[in-house]
Amino acid sequence: MSRADDLERIGEALRRAADVLARFTPGEIAYRVKSKGDPVTEADEAVDAALRSTLPLPGEGWLSEETADDPSRLDCARTWIVDPLDGTKEFVRGIPEWCVSVGLVEGDQPVAGGILVPSRGLTILGSLDTGVTVNGEPARVRELDGLDGITVLASRSEVKRGRWERFSSAPFAIEPLGSVAYKMGLVAAGLADATWTLVPKNEWDVAGGTALVRAAGGAVWRPDGEPLKFNQPKTLLPGLLATPAGLEQPVRDYLA
């Protein structure tokens, strides 16, 4: 199985997801609330089924927000980690800041990924071996080496809860947006400067984005300095930062 084959499979999965999503109207869809208070819709579950029918081959693991976890994935050399609809809260409100996120993990590291952003007509694909494309055209993170004047994409809910007040005097601007995968996709595509979240996120929220940002020449790391590993028994990560490589040290220094 070549990396080109992996990317073709991701592309096909995202095309099928787009076909599924075309049946639904954001802002006009019923939802129910899961045990932890997050909404889930028929669209989440239908996209999950489309991805699962396309991506994993026999012997490959599967981890999805909308599928009961199967611990056998921990024994797989390759595992697909997906969020069928990252930003469901925005989706049900009709806010166009949501996406489909796919990540392929080998061992404990994301090596390829894809993010579909229907509201902007974007398909972002890439791998560590091939780099990143946006709608078929090569893309890279922005060339930046300092914090002055940049814009950091922040979680709308984190901003609302006051978690970004500590940055009120920062040398950078803050733009609240929904969906961490969407924000990471924009950074990987060279359409945004940087993003980070300092609250826990699940692996499925960020696996695809991690692969893409790194493939596009960027850096992704945990705020606590511990190694970033995926396909773990406990899927919750203590936040994540994603920037062009030239911003990694300035951001680390600023947050220290």
Rank of each mutant, 00 (worst) to 15 (best):
E175M: 00
S169Y: 03
A18K: 02
G217Y: 10
E97H: 10
D148R: 10
A219K: 10
L122K: 07
R78T: 13
T235S: 14
G178E: 00
K160F: 15
L125A: 10
A22K: 05
D6R: 10
E203A: 10
C99G: 11
T210K: 07
P96Y: 15
W204V: 11
T25L: 07
F230H: 04
G107L: 10
A219M: 10
K34C: 03
V213M: 06
T243G: 02
R3V: 12
G190V: 05
G37W: 12
S127W: 04
E248M: 03
A181G: 11
E42H: 09
A216M: 03
K234W: 08
P227N: 02
L177A: 10
V159T: 12
G208H: 06
G209Y: 06
G87C: 14
D75A: 15
R222T: 04
K160D: 15
R166F: 06
R120A: 14
V152D: 09
R78V: 13
L247Q: 00
A68E: 11
G209I: 10
G209L: 09
N231K: 12
G190L: 05
I174H: 03
W98S: 07
L51G: 09
A49S: 15
D44C: 04
C76A: 15
G225T: 08
P176I: 04
R16H: 12
P171Y: 08
G61T: 04
E90W: 14
D145K: 05
P238F: 11
G146A: 04
V117L: 15
R93S: 15
C99P: 10
F172W: 05
P71A: 02
K201R: 13
V187P: 01
K201E: 14
E60I: 04
Y254Q: 07
L14D: 09
R93T: 14
V117G: 08
G126M: 04
E12I: 07
C99W: 09
P223E: 07
L63C: 05
A173Q: 08
W62Y: 12
V152S: 12
G185Q: 02
R3W: 12
T54Y: 10
P58G: 05
A216F: 02
T235I: 14
R73I: 10
W221K: 03
L57H: 01
G209N: 03
I124T: 11
R3E: 06
R23N: 05
G11L: 08
V159R: 09
G136P: 02
R3P: 03
Q249L: 14
V199K: 08
L125P: 09
Q232E: 11
T197Y: 10
V213Y: 07
E60T: 04
S157K: 15
N135G: 11
E137T: 09
A43L: 01
E60K: 00
Y31Q: 03
L63P: 01
D83E: 12
R9K: 13
S127T: 06
F167A: 04
S155D: 14
R78C: 11
V111P: 08
V206Q: 08
D19F: 09
R23T: 14
G121N: 11
A188R: 00
E106L: 05
D69H: 08
N231V: 12
P71L: 05
R16Q: 15
